[in-house]
């Protein structure tokens, strides 16, 4: 096991920001820590880097305790903070060279490491430009490049796409996925469910400092309930007869009817759409709009906490 987080707790006075968090990450995995803002993700990550001393518990990374040998831990991790942490008046290369020195990258391989990470984030052609002249997305990519300088066994990314345009976000996520394919273990925190779903194989959901669900994506979907939901908006109001005809369709679990809205729970999803539309037409209730919603982590979070991830 590359990472073991044991009963990690942080109290700031009366506030318990992180409360007995426990998870493990095998080498090579992309692990997601999903939770709303203020859930305790950044505090957890800060304790894992040794920036914040835990009130209780410990973190073991590559066999080293963050409490007893923080320097050894810092040598095997790369950190990409939530904010762009770069010197704006220095060029990308100057920033990378400086942080490589802080990361103890040997002098004889320093230049080649800087070249390598510039290639990974595809900014070699802009390496001599000052960071202050970069777009937000480019700054984010250099921010990630800094975390890769020491070829870390574990790359910790704390909401690395906040404030990034969709195109740059996709580019960053693709880069990270590729790194993971190459064997880099990822710990990725975010409040964007789609990012975690795209990138991570194993996910822990955190809220109010506690891990409230933990498992593979498939495990968590099962916990959320495995029903697809077909939402139908009708042109006119329908009666109980329509509800009964829909409920009689094969694969339909439940039907809820309210005014012009129908909500059908099923385990057949899109394959049932044609039958639903046909049944409603036959009943003299033409369809205005129809969509299928598959269960996701947002639903699980809603089920567990009663609030949305973005609340």
């Amino acid at each position: 096991m590359l990472v073991e987080v044991k009963d990690l707790t942080k109290r700031f006075g009366k506030l318990t920001a992180v409360d007995g968090v426990h998870f493990r990450i095998p080498a090579g995995e992309a692990f997601g820590l999903l939770g709303p803002n203020g859930a305790g993700k950044t505090t957890t990550v800060s304790m894992m880097c040794g920036l914040v001393v835990p009130s209780q518990g410990d973190v073991i990374i590559d066999g080293h305790s963050i409490l007893h040998d923080p320097m050894a831990v810092r040598r095997v991790i790369g950190v990409v903070p939530q904010d762009v942490a770069l010197y704006p008046t220095l060029s990308a290369r100057e920033n990378l060279t400086f942080f490589a020195r802080m990361q103890d990258v040997p002098a004889d391989t320093l230049a080649s490491r800087v070249d390598a990470v510039l290639d990974i984030v595809q900014l070699a052609d802009r390496q001599k430009d000052r960071v202050e002249t970069y777009s937000g997305g480019m700054k984010r990519r250099i921010n990630i490049a800094v975390g890769l300088l020491n070829q870390p066994r574990l790359l910790i990314l704390d909401e690395p796409t906040v404030g990034v345009d969709p195109q740059s976000r996709n580019s960053i996520l693709e880069t990270l996925k590729e790194l993971n394919r190459q064997g880099v273990t990822l710990l990725y925190t975010s409040h964007y469910m789609e990012e975690v779903e795209f990138l991570c194989t194993h996910i822990a959901i955190i809220d109010h400092g506690k891990v409230i669900a933990d498992g593979t994506q498939q495990d968590l979907r099962l916990q959320a309930g495995n029903k697809d939901i077909i939402n139908v908006q009708l042109v006119r109001e329908a009666g109980d007869v329509v509800r009964d005809r829909l409920a009689a369709l094969p694969g339909v679990d439940t039907v809820e009817l309210r005014d012009k809205t129908v909500r059908i729970a099923t385990n057949q999803g899109r394959s049932l759409l044609a039958g639903v539309i046909s049944t409603l037409d036959d009943a003299g209730c033409p369809v205005s709009t129809i969509d299928v919603k598959e269960p996701n982590l947002e639903d699980l979070f809603l089920n567990l906490t009663g609030t949305s991830l973005r609340d």
């Binding site: 880097c49 040794g50 920036l51 810092r74 040598r75 942490a85 704006p88 802080m102 103890d104």
Partner: peptide, 14 residues
């Protein structure tokens, strides 16, 4: 302010 201090402190730098 520009978050570079915690970044340095997250490296093996005392």
């Amino acid at each position: 302010r520009q978050h570079t201090l915690p970044r340095i402190l997250a490296t093996p730098t005392s």
